[in-house]
Nucleic acid binder design. Sequence first.
DNA 1: GTCTTCATGACAAACCCATGACATCTTAAG
DNA 2: CTTAAGATGTCATGGGTTTGTCATGAAGAC
Lengths: 240, 240
Amino acid sequence: MSSREATNTNAPRVLIVEDEEALSLLLAYNLEAEGYVVERCERGDDAELLLLEGPPDLVILDWMLPGVSGIEICRRLRAREGTRTLPVIMLTARGEEDERVRGLSVGADDYVVKPFSVPELMARVRALLRRAAPERIAGRLAAGDIELDRETHRVRRGARDVHLGPTEFRLLDRLLEKPGRVFTRAQLLDAVWGNTAEIDERTVDVHVGRLRKALSHGREPDPIRTIRGAGYAFDETFGR
Amino acid sequence: MSSREATNTNAPRVLIVEDEEALSLLLAYNLEAEGYVVERCERGDDAELLLLEGPPDLVILDWMLPGVSGIEICRRLRAREGTRTLPVIMLTARGEEDERVRGLSVGADDYVVKPFSVPELMARVRALLRRAAPERIAGRLAAGDIELDRETHRVRRGARDVHLGPTEFRLLDRLLEKPGRVFTRAQLLDAVWGNTAEIDERTVDVHVGRLRKALSHGREPDPIRTIRGAGYAFDETFGR
DNA sequence: GTCTTCATGACAAACCCATGACATCTTAAG
DNA sequence: CTTAAGATGTCATGGGTTTGTCATGAAGAC
C-alpha cells in the first residue's frame, strides 16, 4: 500500500472547508498521503461554488467560517437532491461542544472537536467513506449447473461445493456476469485484478486454467470457452 | 416449531402477484391455512404500490404480468434499499424455462415452474422465510444447536451454556443475523465496534478466534466460516 | 511445416489467517 | 481504596494457501 498513484481517477475526492490555513494544509497533506484527491477552500461562500461544480465524496467542514457558516452549508447540502447523502464531518472548537446536538441535527455524519489527533480524523474519514460506498449488488449468478452466490461467497456445481481462491472467484464472477461475452485479457485484468499495471497478461491464462480445473473436477464439460486471439468467455450455450 | 395463531400480528406477510385468479386464490388459501397473512394483486403496477406501502416478508411473483413484468419488479426490489433482501419466488410457465438464468440473475431467490404441486411451493416458502426470519424475530437467534437470546444476553450450544464477552456476543449476534452471508472485516467493525473506527482490522480475527474457542469447546464442529480474502460468515449449512 | 497462441506443471515469494503472549483498561469484589 | 478478575486491542510468530512467473509442450492458423 506504499506507492501511490499520482492521479488515480477513482480515488475518493475530499473537500476541506477551513479558514485556519495551517490546519487545512495539515489535513490535505495527510489525506493526499492516503491517496485521496483533496480540494481546499477557506470561505463558506467559496465552498458553495465548488460544491455546485461537482460534489466530492466527502466534506470536512469547519463550524465557524467567514462568509457562510459551516452549519449553513451543511443544511443546504442536505436540502439539495444530489448532495443529500454526501458524508460530512464537522470540525468544532472546544467550547462549542454544547452545540453538538445542533450540529448533528443539521445532518453532519460525524463530529470532531478541536484539537483532535490526525489519525483519529483519518479513521473517521475512512469509516464514513466505507459506509457510503455503494454495496455490491449481492445476488446469485447461475448458468447451467454452475452457481455463484455473492452473498455467501459460495460456488457450486451441481450438488458439489467448489472451492476457489479469491482471484478465481472474482474471475468466475466477472465471466458469469455476462455469459457468452468475450473478455480480453486486459479487460479481465482490469476487472479482476484492479491495477492492471504490473501483471503479465499470460497470468490470466493460468488463472483460467485453475478455474477450469476447479470447476471440472471429473469428466464434466468445460464451461469456459477460449477465443483464440481474443480472450475468454463463459460458454452461454453451456447446459442447454 | 411452526404452528401459528390465525391472526398473529407477527405472522409473516406474503404478497402474491399473479394475474391468473384461480391460481392466486389457491395459493392464498393454502398459505392462509398455514397461518400466513396474504395479500394478492393481479397487475405489476399495482404490486409496486403495495410494495411501497409496506414490504411483506416474502413475494410470490409471476413472470408474465400485465402492467409491469415480474422480472422488472424483481429488479426494482433489488435496487431499493429496504427490499434488497426481500425473498422472492418467481413463477414461470414451462417453455419460459430457458429464461431461468435471467430470472436468477435478476435476483429471485427461488424459481418454480408451472404447473407445480402446492406442497412443493409451500415447502419453498417455508424454506425462504426460515432463511430470512432471524432478522425479524427480535430477541432470539438460532442456527443448528447454537442459540443466542438477546433478552437474557445468553448463548447456548446444545445443552451447555456458553460464556461470551460483550464483544464476542455482539459479533455472534451480527453473524447470526444473516447466516451464510459473508461480512467483511470493515463491516463487522462498523456493526460490532461502532463508529470509533480507530481499530485495526486484524483485531476482528482475534475476536473471531475467541468466539470460536468459546463455541467449540470440545470436538464440536466450527460454525464459523473463514472466507479467504473476504471475511467471515456463519455457516448456514451448519446443522443440516 | 512453421509460426503463433494457449495449456499446464513446477516453484518461490507473497500473502493471509490462526494463535499465544502481553500490556492496558474496565469491572467487580473485598 | 485496593486488589483481583476479566475483557480488549495489538503484536510477533508460524503454517498453510494463493499467486505470478516461467519453461515446456500441445493445439491452431496459414
